[in-house]
Design a protein around this nucleic acid. Structure first.
Length: 286
DNA sequence: GGCCAGGTCCAAT
DNA sequence: ATTGGACATGGC
C-alpha cells in the first residue's frame, strides 16, 4: 500500500498521542497504529507531514485537528509569561477529535485512575464487546457502541471497579441518543447535558467537550491541574475547583482548554523528571 | 508496601 | 452551598 502524505505543520504526533487525551493507539519502531471509531490506520511523522495508511486526507485533517491555527493559539497564550515553560515544553501538541461516546466512556473509566490502566480498561472493553477491525495483518476491535456495553456485573469482572455502574448506566442513557444533540448546543448547555450521565460531572464533561467536541474553552480540573494552578496562579492557597476554572476562563477565555492541556503535560513531565532525579543513585541489590 | 490516581456521588453540616 | 467519606483496583 502506498502511504498517503498529509501536510501537518506544527504537529508533534508522539507528544499528542502521549498527552493523555486518547488511549486507542500503540507505538512500534515503525510508527503508530491508531483506531478511531471503526477506522484503523497506521501513521508516522515526516517532516511537517504525516504518512498515513488506512485513512483518507479528510479524516486525517479532522481527527488531528490540523486546520486549527496552532500558531495563533500559541501566540495568544504567550502573552501570559507564567505559561511559557508549558508552552516551551509542548510545541506541536494538538487536540484530537474523538468519537463522543468512546471519549465519554474512556473518561468515565479515567475516574481516580491512571493512564496505563485507563488504556487497559478501554482495550478490554473493545476486545470483549467491539467488532473486529483489520488493517493488513493488524487486528484490533472497535470500541463498543452504547447498546453493546454489557451489564454492571460484567464490567466489574473486567475490573472497572466502582466505575462499572457509572458506565453501564451512562451507556443506557447514551443508547437513547443523549449525545447526538450535544454538538449543536452552546458550551454551558452542552456541559449540563453531558452531566446528566452518571459518572459524568464537571471534570469528565469538560474532558469530553475538549477532546471530542472541540470546545477549547473547556477547562477540566483534575489533581494535576489543581496542583499546578494553585502553585503557579494562587500562591499555594487552596481554592475550590470552580474558582480555578473561573480564573482560567477569565484569563484565557476560549483558549483555556489549550492552556490546560499544556499545563497538564508539562506538570507531569516535570514531576517525572523530579522523581527520576530523586531516585537513589545506586540500587540496594548491587 | 503504601500512597495516589485526568472524580463522582451522597449525606451531613 | 460546602465538605468529607465511600467507592475498586492497580501503578509506581
Amino acid at each position: 500500500m502506498t502511504p498517503l502524505v498529509v501536510p501537518a505543520p506544527r504537529f508533534d504526533l508522539r507528544l499528542t498521542l502521549e498527552s493523555g487525551q486518547f488511549f486507542r493507539w500503540s507505538a512500534d519502531d515503525d510508527g503508530f497504529t491508531v483506531i478511531r471509531g471503526l477506522r484503523l490506520f497506521r501513521v508516522r511523522p515526516r517532516r511537517d507531514a504525516l504518512e498515513v495508511v488506512g485513512a483518507d486526507r479528510w479524516f486525517v485533517r479532522e481527527f488531528f485537528s490540523l486546520d486549527h491555527d496552532l500558531a495563533a493559539t500559541e501566540r495568544a497564550l504567550r502573552r501570559d509569561r507564567r505559561l511559557w515553560p508549558a508552552l516551551d515544553a509542548c510545541p506541536g501538541l494538538r487536540f484530537l477529535r474523538q468519537d463522543p461516546w468512546e471519549c465519554t466512556a474512556a473518561f468515565i473509566c479515567s475516574i481516580a485512575s491512571n493512564i496505563p490502566r485507563i488504556a487497559g480498561n478501554v482495550s478490554d472493553l473493545a476486545r470483549g464487546y467491539g467488532r473486529p477491525v483489520r488493517l493488513g495483518d493488524a487486528s484490533w476491535h472497535s470500541f463498543p457502541r452504547p447498546a453493546d456495553i454489557p451489564s454492571e456485573g460484567e464490567l466489574r469482572r473486567l475490573r472497572l471497579g466502582f466505575r462499572a455502574r457509572y458506565l453501564a448506566q451512562a451507556a443506557r442513557l447514551a443508547a437513547g441518543g443523549v449525545l447526538e444533540e450535544i454538538a449543536a448546543l452552546p458550551y454551558e448547555e452542552a456541559r449540563e447535558t453531558l452531566m446528566v450521565l452518571p459518572g459524568v460531572a464537571e471534570k469528565v464533561a469538560d474532558c469530553v467537550l475538549l477532546f471530542a467536541y472541540g470546545r477549547l474553552q473547556a477547562f477540566p480540573v483534575d489533581t494535576w491541574i489543581r496542583r499546578v494552578m494553585i502553585e503557579r496562579y494562587f500562591e499555594g492557597r487552596r481554592v475550590p475547583d470552580r474558582a480555578i476554572r473561573a480564573f482560567a476562563q477569565e484569563r484565557w477565555g476560549d483558549l483555556a482548554g489549550y492552556a490546560q492541556q499544556i499545563l497538564y503535560v508539562w506538570s507531569r513531565a516535570t514531576a517525572r523528571k523530579g522523581r527520576r532525579a530523586s531516585l537513589p543513585a545506586r540500587s540496594l541489590s548491587e
